[in-house]
Design a protein around this nucleic acid. Sequence first.
DNA 1: CGCAGTGGACTAGCCCGTCCAGTCCATTTA
DNA 2: TAAATGGACTGGACGGGCTAGTCCACTGCG
Lengths: 227, 227
Amino acid sequence: MRTDSGPRRSAAGRPAGPQPAKRQAILEAAVAVFLREGYNRASVDVIADEARVSKQTVYNHFGDKERLFIAAVEEERERVAAGFAAGSPYVLGPDGAANAEAYDGGDARAALIAFGHRVLAVLLDERASALRRLVIAEVARHPSLRPACAEGEPQQLVKYLAEMLGRRSSRGELSVPDPAAAAHQFVALVVQQGLYQSMYGTRPLADDEAAAIYESAADLLVRAYRP
Amino acid sequence: MRTDSGPRRSAAGRPAGPQPAKRQAILEAAVAVFLREGYNRASVDVIADEARVSKQTVYNHFGDKERLFIAAVEEERERVAAGFAAGSPYVLGPDGAANAEAYDGGDARAALIAFGHRVLAVLLDERASALRRLVIAEVARHPSLRPACAEGEPQQLVKYLAEMLGRRSSRGELSVPDPAAAAHQFVALVVQQGLYQSMYGTRPLADDEAAAIYESAADLLVRAYRP
DNA sequence: CGCAGTGGACTAGCCCGTCCAGTCCATTTA
DNA sequence: TAAATGGACTGGACGGGCTAGTCCACTGCG
């Protein structure tokens, strides 16, 4: 019976358990291969090669292809989510409020435009798009993926935008009866066409097209909610 | 040298060429199996069985799995597109204009709501959704699918809506500076969340949720474009 | 010494695409 | 009318290729 509570180690040898470095290498290779090939065409041998690891090690760490897949998707999903928060300081600071007013300056239209620009950037990031396509392709046959996407990606952004609209509304700058709904609407307007194109892998939405989209979305909201 | 222009026939035997009935049966089975299983997991043997046809016949008609797949997607795409037009008499009559004013009565809000309701119905049809998921999953590895979706599905609907907005605008009922853009915006508002849920295969958007979506979308446009 | 990791062989299974002998049948020919 | 004809279709077998997952003898290191 073991009495210490530290990491299990035997009488001699390195700290027990699979090596985290190997695990990480396998995960990264798995992400790359699954995003590139999809679940079925991705072969465990290729993943092992690409991770510079023996196939047996892959099975030691993850058990089978299915579980490796789930873990890889989760890994990439966290990477993308981290990009949401970290890469967008004005959305949520570390404490969730520090930069909460970053978009409160200027007029409403300018703030919405800046916000829309940012939303498109994070949503149309190439790896995020590839992950979306992969999950859509496989979620029907791998129900464990469901939680990975059920919340919807832009949740946090919508929430922040709703707060911004609420503040501008209480300042009398706008007249927004339901800020949460309005935020959803703005994000839908901004995101729709870009998502469509990223899903079908057609041309990835030129900068001026994107600009036209979020500018007219901002115009629409400002017109509708002028006080 | 043949002199008649009828279907090729040899000295004896039934009219030459593969039997269209078989071809159709194969196509329908292929659609069913591909939508159900995806490209890789769908096996030609299963499709042949389900079409009550021998595997050799499948290969006689379509050459290989790839071409069968393309043909199946095209078949289903046409079926969905037909549903767009035929099933929605108020969008385009047989001559393209007969019912063009079907939504011109009533006030703008009511017309937009009715229109949004219809758009959601055709876009979230279960088979249409399954086709969308399949194409998204495979378009990267089967470039021949590109044309099948490049135009975007709701094109026709958007065009009609733009015309309706234009008419109401010239009647002074609304003030829509750019009807085409406004139509795109309305469709984006209506469609976004439902598409999202149908892609990820989560719960298929209850009726009251759908109603809330297109009602508030109609409200937004009416507010923004009041004369 | 003990254990994570290696590399390669191996099993078992699936699937595409081909092949072939034989059936069916509408039409032509005798 | 009866036989011949040739093409579409059948059903089952099979080759070749790829893959998931297992096994094992071996290595290197703390």
